[in-house]
């Protein structure tokens, strides 16, 4: 596992297709194939795969319902995609593939989407009041409010990116100094546990920010 991002295709000297993008594509293909395989034949009495999928949907519904409210259940597919993508990306370290989430471009893209969603739904729900909110409690505090709003995607993206990159650095060091057995514990902790926690944090914060913007 490398600490640096590999570039496969460059466009005018700028990296165009990197290993982050290819890994993301692989993850997307795997997820799409798995989805197709599960939903190809849905039965009234579900099999194991269907049961897992239904359990996942119920979990997402439960999470959205309890965090955002039942009226925001239309965010469930987005939350599902976000959760699965970040989770699978975080778990990629287990098969010695660089996490796409350990690339700031990925986390920034995800945080950017979240930021745009927050702004869009905030404006849609509150309209002018949403903009007025930036001038609350006092108008001269607008710059601070604006910085605070812009800090949202930055903090989201850097938290996930930092944790995942840190995991890679520590794991590389583990392989360098104690290559036998100990890295297994490192993988369990950094890839599984930290990966799960960071997914949960990212998703929870996304849901909270959208809800705060709308309500």
């Amino acid at each position: 596992m490398d600490i640096d991002i590999r570039t496969f295709v460059e466009l005018q000297g700028v990296p165009f297709i990197t290993n982050t993008v290819t890994t993301t594509w692989i993850i997307m293909i795997v997820m799409f194939a798995a989805s197709m395989s599960v939903t190809r034949k849905l039965n009234m009495i579900p099999g194991t795969a269907q049961q897992i999928a239904e359990l996942l949907m119920e979990g997402i519904h439960w999470l959205v319902d309890n965090t955002m409210g039942e009226d925001k259940m239309n965010f469930a597919p987005f939350i599902l995609a976000l959760s699965l993508f970040i989770l699978i990306s975080n778990f990629m370290g287990l098969i010695a593939v660089r996490h796409p989430t350990a690339d700031l471009n990925t986390t920034f893209a995800l945080a950017g989407i979240t930021f745009l969603l927050v702004q869009y739904h905030g404006l849609r729900a509150k309209k002018l009041n949403y903009i007025k909110g930036f001038f609350q409690p006092l108008p001269f505090l607008f710059p601070l409010n604006l910085i605070s709003e812009l800090a949202l995607p930055i903090s989201l993206s850097f938290r996930l990116f930092g944790n995942m990159l840190g995991s890679i650095v520590i794991m590389i060091m583990m392989y360098m100094f104690v290559p036998i057995l100990v890295p297994i514990i490192g993988h369990i902790y950094f890839d599984l546990f930290i990966g799960l926690i960071q997914t949960f944090i990212f998703v929870m914060l996304t849901m909270t920010f959208i809800t705060l913007a709308m309500d």
Partner: peptide, 10 residues
């Protein structure tokens, strides 16, 4: 480029 790719991918 990667950011845009990732946004599109996502």
């Amino acid at each position: 480029y990667t950011v845009i790719f990732q946004i599109i991918n996502f």
